[in-house]
Simulated scan of single mutants.
Amino acid sequence: MSFSWYPPPTGWIKINVDASISRNKVAGFGGVARDDKGRFLIAFGANILQWDIAKIELMAILYLKNITPEWMFEAQGIIIEGDNSNIIKLLQSAMKTWKVSKYIDDNFTFLLNFNQVLFSFAKRECNKLVDVCANLALKSSFVWEDISFEDIPPSFLLCLKEECDSLRFF
């Protein structure tokens, strides 16, 4: 049993998403994309007023259409991974329906730009880095496309290093 993030297959990108809610109903969601070698590609976070954690996790996935760089569409595929099993099951079921009926909800048409899309459930322990993003998003929205960006908090960098160290990527 793994208790850390695990990389996608060669040529694929994994995007982990998560959500967080504060006591005053301010919600944050975030995501982190990494390649098959564990290299950081992009991270994002946004905040909203919302109290339904499932809806917030779904919003994190939908937010990808706003921040996905064009070059990501060239990957062999993407794995969108989250720790809300209900949302992951819902999207896995929807993918099967989309393949059969050839109908996709307008909110998800951006996923057709990718060669392949898989939805995967991850235990909370395996989703630590994106949990940091969701909690940082409670304070302010962000998009980081460069790991050397000086505004990236040390908590994010430390968690990224710990996950990479556990996989022996550094």
Rank of each mutant, 00 (worst) to 15 (best):
S2G: 04
F3N: 15
S4W: 10
S4M: 07
S4A: 13
W5H: 14
Y6M: 13
P7M: 09
P8Y: 01
P8F: 04
P9I: 00
W12E: 01
W12M: 00
I13N: 05
I13W: 02
K14D: 00
I15C: 12
N16E: 03
V17I: 13
D18L: 07
D18K: 10
I21Y: 05
S22K: 14
R23N: 07
N24M: 04
K25S: 13
V26R: 15
A27W: 13
F29R: 08
F29E: 08
F29T: 08
G31M: 05
V32S: 10
V32T: 13
R34D: 14
D35K: 10
D35F: 11
G38W: 12
R39D: 15
F40A: 15
L41P: 08
L41Y: 09
I42M: 15
G45Y: 10
G45D: 08
G45C: 11
Q50S: 09
Q50F: 05
D52P: 07
K55C: 08
K55D: 11
I56F: 10
L58R: 06
A60P: 10
A60L: 04
I61Y: 05
L62R: 13
L62K: 15
L62F: 09
Y63N: 14
Y63I: 03
L64K: 06
L64P: 04
I67M: 08
T68M: 12
P69L: 06
P69G: 09
W71D: 11
M72V: 03
F73I: 07
A75R: 02
Q76C: 00
I78Q: 06
I78K: 04
I79F: 03
D83N: 14
D83V: 08
N86Q: 06
I87K: 03
I88G: 06
I88V: 07
I88T: 05
L91D: 04
S93M: 11
K96G: 06
W98M: 12
K99C: 12
K102H: 14
K102N: 14
K102E: 12
K102G: 00
Y103T: 06
D105M: 06
N107M: 08
N107R: 15
F110G: 06
L112R: 11
N113D: 01
F114T: 01
N115W: 00
N115K: 09
N115G: 01
V117W: 01
L118P: 00
L118G: 00
A122Q: 03
A122K: 04
R124S: 11
R124Q: 12
E125C: 11
E125I: 10
E125M: 06
N127H: 08
N127F: 10
K128L: 12
V130N: 09
V130Q: 06
V132Q: 10
C133E: 07
A134K: 01
A134S: 15
A134H: 02
A134N: 01
N135D: 15
N135M: 09
N135A: 05
L138A: 14
S141H: 13
V143D: 03
V143G: 02
W144D: 02
W144R: 03
W144F: 12
I147H: 06
E150G: 02
E150A: 05
E150M: 00
D151S: 08
D151Q: 09
I152E: 02
P153L: 01
P153W: 01
P154Y: 06
P154T: 07
S155W: 00
L157T: 02
L157C: 07
L157A: 05
L158P: 00
K161H: 08
K161Q: 10
E163T: 14
L167G: 02
L167E: 13
L167D: 05
R168K: 13
F170P: 11
